[in-house]
Design a protein around this nucleic acid. Structure first.
Lengths: 234, 234
DNA sequence: CGATGCGTTGATAACTTTCAAATTTAGTGG
DNA sequence: CCACTAAATTTGAAAGTTATCAACGCATCG
């Protein structure tokens, strides 16, 4: 039922950059505020192969991460063995912002991924000196809070609404036109939406039958009728 | 299905205190950090009768609130008419921390309530000058984030698990021994947990039959077997 | 006392999960 | 590049859970 236990394959430690950290990759990862610039200056680029662990639940939360390339999932294993996914992070997204002493979630690379790793203490120290940076950090956290709220609204809805919302969310964050490339498996989606993979699969089929989407391949969805999806979205 | 539309009965505007704001009430509302002290100095005490609105969705989020007495619910009405409750706030709790320009949720008094109202701008200005205050504000937001995460974990579980978790949460926050006084109605609980009132009611009956709790009156629950509840909690 | 709101209980329907199997896709070694 | 194997996805049937619709009990309030 669960994804196979991730292999810890990250072969580099923070601050031993795999390449000159400045100027690092300039992918989709630049919403250029002062924070982004500082992170690039202070951070190191790390590579994680598919399904490898980036950090573990209960580990000290000493670093903050920004996705440069690839995608990341945070998750928690419940006592009954189920896995709940906390969120997906795409290029440009910052994660590890728990701002508690220890992580409450684990993080894994969904696909081969490059992330910018920054020491949290360096970042908060900087925020103490530079109000603009502090504000940006705060905004990031607020945005995360908002996303959680939306998530809560989503989780009380029906399977169809959840899947429709998920597709629209991914479209907004990573769409090329109406084509949504999903980096994650059905199991990941199911664990994110609090459904089973069978229900996710059936719902997608249903949406396709209803001509709202087209399931080109299992990882590529074409949105055919956004207003129909929005209607389901609630 | 929904609670009756709240009557807007708050007869006072912020900063026209109903009583001398200093020194204000000294109820359960004091986890005395510098933030709490500043809020008391800068804030005004406002009274809201049961079911009255404290702020509305989409209103400017100009104030931050701290419950002195009573209880508050934040909520959102979904497009299909359902109501989702964002959270309950008890004496000592701070709410209105969205830190966006506009509230994303509405807030109402669940019971007759007194809150301390502080201008957000005053608080953030203060945070700019006093790092300790900024840190406390940040911590509050982080705690809210954590609570949301827990909430998400809760919403993917079964009705029994949700109700059990809810009771344990309330016990932790407001219990006198094993007696939990619930300020909110079954409808409130249902809208918080993403269930119907019938399911909440049946689940409580079930827990009582299983000797885990005792429903003394509809608003007073006695926890008879916490470990059983914890087991359900997952 | 009758009206009203809230909570509980019952019967049925709708939805989602579970268990099982078929089908497609992806990965590996030759 | 193909064949083979393992993994992922889809589909089907049955069971389980929760919602819906309806009725009833209980307390409060005029």
């Amino acid at each position: 039922m669960l994804a196979p236990a991730p292999i810890r394959t990250s072969q580099f430690r923070p601050f031993v950059p795999t390449q000159s950290p400045t100027p690092p990759v300039r992918d989709a990862a630049d919403a250029q505020g002062p924070l982004a610039q500082s992170m690039q200056l202070m951070g190191a680029v790390m590579s994680y192969p598919r399904n490898s662990e980036i950090f573990g639940d209960n580990e000290a939360a000493d670093y903050v991460y920004k996705v440069i390339k690839g995608s990341v999932r945070t998750y928690k294993i419940l006592s009954d063995g189920r896995r709940q996914i906390g969120g997906f992070y795409l290029p440009g997204d910052v994660f590890g912002l728990q701002f508690a002493d220890a992580h409450t979630l684990s993080a894994e690379a969904v696909t081969d991924t490059k992330v910018l790793v920054v020491k949290r203490s360096a970042l908060t120290a900087l925020a103490g000196r530079d109000a603009a940076i502090g504000r940006e950090l705060f905004d990031l956290t607020s945005r995360e809070l908002r996303r959680m709220q939306d998530r809560i609204l989503l989780l009380v809805k029906s399977a169809q609404e959840r899947v429709a919302s998920f597709l629209l969310e991914m479209a907004e964050r990573a769409a090329a036109g109406n084509i949504v490339e999903l980096p994650m498996s059905r199991q990941d989606i199911a664990d994110y939406l609090g459904l089973t993979i069978e229900t996710v699969s059936r719902t997608l089929t249903g949406l396709e039958t209803a001509a709202a989407i087209e399931v080109a391949t299992s990882r590529r969805i074409v949105l055919r009728n956004r207003s129909a999806l929005n209607r389901l979205n609630g």
